Amino acid sequence: MKFLPLLWSNLQRKRLRTWLTLASIVVAFLLFGILQTMRAALTGGADLAGVDRLVTINKVSIIQPLPQSYLNRVRSVEGVRIAMSQDWFGGIFQDDRNQIAALTVDPKIFFEVYPEYSLPEAQRAEWQADRAGAIVGSAVAERFGWKAGDTIPLRSNIWTKSDGSSTWDLKIIGIYSTSNGDNSSLYFQYDYLNEARSFGRNNIGMIVMRIADPSRSADIARKVDEQFANSSTETKTSTEKAFVQGFANQMGSIGTIVTAVSSAVFFTMLLVIANTMGQSVRERTNELAVMKTLGFSSFQVTAMVLAEALLLTVLGAAIGLGVAAMAAMSLGQAIQQFFPTLGMPANTYIIGAVLAIGLGAIAGALPCAQAWQLKIVDALRKA
């Protein structure tokens, strides 16, 4: 620590060059933090999925419906504890920009399928009794200022009523909370949708089931699909995690994209920092020789050169990741309806610290070698 003022003075020798290099490192780690945030947002839902839940959809496409009669047949499969249908509603509140993850479910068994969701017992009973009732997550309720007892007009970009209207009036029964992070959804009764919609009556979008033994998920999924094999509407059953991950995979391998972009950025930064440190050592050759003359060992001189590189990269990484964290918070509030779990993962800081130290060490390797091999007589003669 006693050499820190000396290190900082050396970095300020060419202030413009140092600040430009620092700014480049900040931008690199800012980009890294945002990429990690988006990767977590696109794939994080899979990590929150229930380990004991399976999802059955139409084998052709998720947008193709299933007959409602399939639900009882799935319930009869050995190993299935409970199952319910689920339909995507495509909710819009007032403005097209206010999109809500609205789904229809069976309120009688919803909390058995999703035990991580909590709602007071009185509100659960009221929801079951009111066909036009809905429950909403705490995040979406706070966003729009909704409270229990409010009636909201929710427009669908998919479903229309038999009278031609696309607006559905829903009464907010309660505000749920959940331990899995998804507090931005809205759920209402399937019967309310099914009885009033102009098309698709007695069809369901998908079936979500809880199973008794997660270790038998592959076997149970196979048995479910075998029931509908060679029928006009075949099914595809997978774990909830695989189902959620499938959406992210439609955009390609997010992990590969993040790795490729980050690698390109950090390789560029490696060249920039190495060039900066190389120039710094060449400009101070005679000063380093004087330090050795005054009694500094080759190890001490080399360590200070390496410390300069590490100080630059660690400082830039700290600023960049800090700005990325603030950006993730602001971005999360803006697009919470699309990515309920948006936020910079905690391991980003650990990975960032390792990258900063590794980047500084590699970039400073050649300048350190030059400082170590520096001969006092030769350096002073050139001066």
Results as ranks from 00 to 15, higher is better:
residue 3 F to V: 04
residue 8 W to V: 09
residue 8 W to E: 03
residue 9 S to V: 06
residue 12 Q to I: 07
residue 12 Q to M: 07
residue 14 K to G: 09
residue 14 K to A: 12
residue 15 R to Y: 08
residue 16 L to V: 15
residue 16 L to R: 11
residue 19 W to I: 07
residue 24 S to Q: 07
residue 35 L to Y: 07
residue 38 M to H: 14
residue 47 D to M: 14
residue 47 D to C: 13
residue 52 D to P: 06
residue 53 R to Q: 14
residue 54 L to R: 03
residue 55 V to D: 13
residue 59 K to H: 12
residue 60 V to L: 08
residue 66 L to Q: 05
residue 76 S to H: 12
residue 88 W to N: 04
residue 91 G to N: 01
residue 98 N to S: 15
residue 99 Q to G: 14
residue 112 E to N: 11
residue 113 V to T: 06
residue 115 P to H: 12
residue 119 L to C: 10
residue 122 A to E: 14
residue 126 E to T: 04
residue 128 Q to H: 13
residue 133 G to C: 05
residue 134 A to D: 09
residue 134 A to H: 02
residue 137 G to V: 05
residue 142 E to H: 10
residue 145 G to Q: 01
residue 147 K to V: 12
residue 148 A to W: 03
residue 157 N to S: 10
residue 157 N to F: 15
residue 160 T to H: 12
residue 164 G to L: 01
residue 165 S to H: 00
residue 168 W to V: 00
residue 168 W to T: 00
residue 171 K to M: 05
residue 171 K to I: 11
residue 172 I to H: 01
residue 172 I to D: 02
residue 172 I to L: 09
residue 174 G to P: 02
residue 174 G to H: 08
residue 176 Y to N: 03
residue 179 S to I: 12
residue 180 N to T: 08
residue 185 S to W: 09
residue 189 Q to E: 10
residue 190 Y to H: 10
residue 195 E to L: 12
residue 198 S to A: 11
residue 199 F to C: 04
residue 200 G to N: 04
residue 202 N to L: 15
residue 206 M to R: 10
residue 207 I to G: 05
residue 212 A to M: 11
residue 212 A to V: 12
residue 215 S to N: 08
residue 217 S to F: 02
residue 221 A to I: 03
residue 225 D to V: 07
residue 225 D to S: 14
residue 225 D to H: 04
residue 225 D to R: 05
residue 238 S to C: 07
residue 243 F to N: 14
residue 245 Q to D: 13
residue 246 G to F: 10
residue 249 N to Y: 15
residue 267 F to C: 11
residue 273 I to G: 00
residue 278 G to E: 02
residue 280 S to F: 09
residue 286 N to F: 12
residue 292 K to G: 08
residue 296 F to Y: 13
residue 297 S to D: 08
residue 297 S to I: 06
residue 299 F to G: 12
residue 299 F to K: 14
residue 300 Q to C: 06
residue 303 A to E: 00
residue 304 M to G: 08
residue 305 V to I: 10
residue 305 V to R: 02
residue 307 A to T: 03
residue 310 L to F: 07
residue 314 V to R: 04
residue 317 A to V: 03
residue 317 A to S: 15
residue 325 A to C: 06
residue 325 A to S: 14
residue 331 L to K: 09
residue 336 Q to Y: 06
residue 339 F to W: 07
residue 357 I to V: 11
residue 361 A to N: 02
residue 364 G to W: 02
residue 365 A to L: 14
residue 367 P to R: 03
residue 368 C to S: 15
residue 377 V to G: 02
residue 378 D to H: 13
